[in-house]
Design a protein around this nucleic acid. Structure first.
Lengths: 199, 199
DNA sequence: AGTAACTCGTACAGCGGTGTTCAACAAGAG
DNA sequence: CTCTTGTTGAACACCGCTGTACGAGTTACT
């Protein structure tokens, strides 16, 4: 494999992530042009559009995992969850449109397998909080994980509809999720404001 | 307008609801065939595919409103909300795919305007519960409404992915939403099992 | 410098969809 | 019964997309 080719493949996947993050129906033509590459060259590396979307998804997940690795998951579980949700939210918001593209072209099982890594990360923290008694155990954990995801996706929709300011989203999401995870019979924690850098 | 035409229009919108509820990308051809009508006839009544999707959405909302009207919104707010969520969930689950079609073809403002009636219904109940002190007031109400919607949509996705049984969904949704709506500092109510008809 | 790997543009074929036209036919309303 | 309103299927033009073929040109490795 020539260095040239590797460089192009990289540019193509980057352009694919970029274009699909703006328009889930972006055509192969647009992506190739955005990558500064001919359409034929693209087909030389990715047999079909589906393979390209897959590669973009893999790249986005990988890039995201790097950011998520930087999150401190230790300490009080609710505070740790707030941190993880905050970081995850940034990714969900950025790649919202790309996910749509993936859902339209990739088989459901593939989507699920792509998400397993970040989901497991969240699950581990959830289980630690459950052991500490601060997260509920009366609902199935996969359901709770999906609730967390859906609240974030919903926030992205609200922003997209212009009904919500992106700045406020993180606090709303955290407050909502923490309440939803509180075990029955326990008091819902008061929302703790995230430290504000702008002060 | 001839009686014949009115009958066909009705059959077409019914078929559109039906087809789009199964495949959001259903073609005009499929819908016409399902209505027992030629494609040309359909175009005689609906100038474009978008108009057809709009008509299907209007019909689905109207049919849904009839069911929602039967829900008793009086009494203890949390119990009333559980009832309303239960009924809404049936509709969300049934028309999940149609919503996707609408999102792909109708302008966002139109979707929002279509949903305003059921959203207002939920909002009224929410405000009554807030006045009674059982629902939180520290987050914007539009956000809370969207959370309710998103939890239901998420459940539909889980069912669609085979990860969740449709029978269990209603209880999970209610328990999750009630917890999310609990005011900070108050105890999360223990999930109350819905009366089971099968007993 | 030479060779293999790679890229480029253009052009083509195929697909499935939308929307329109036409002329013949059927059915409701008076 | 008649006339207007609807319906019908076939055919057509159009569109944008995907995927492929080809021949000439260019770039990286050795």
């Amino acid at each position: 494999m020539r260095a040239d080719a590797q460089r192009n493949i990289d540019a193509i996947t980057a352009a694919a992530v970029d274009c699909l993050s703006r328009d889930p129906d972006a055509s192969v033509n647009e992506i190739a042009k955005a990558a500064g590459v001919g359409r034929v060259t693209l087909y030389g590396h990715f047999p079909s559009r589906a393979d390209l979307v897959d590669a973009a998804a893999v790249r986005a997940i990988a890039d995201g995992a790097a950011l998520l690795d930087a999150v401190d998951l230790d300490g009080e579980p609710r505070a740790a969850l707030t941190r993880l949700v905050e970081a995850s939210w940034q990714l969900v918001n950025r790649f919202r449109s790309l996910l749509l593209a993936a859902q339209q072209t990739l088989p459901p099982g593939r989507i699920r397998s792509l998400h397993s890594e970040p989901a497991d990360r969240m699950l581990g923290l959830l289980e630690r909080g459950q052991a500490a008694g601060v997260f509920r155990t009366d609902l199935p954990n996969p359901w709770l994980i999906s609730v967390i995801q859906n609240v974030m996706h919903g926030a992205a929709d609200e922003i997209n509809a212009g009904r919500l300011d992106a700045t406020d989203a993180a606090d709303l999401i955290s407050a909502t999720i923490l309440a939803a995870l509180t075990p029955p019979g326990r008091r819902v924690p008061a929302p703790t404001r995230v430290p504000d850098d702008s002060a």
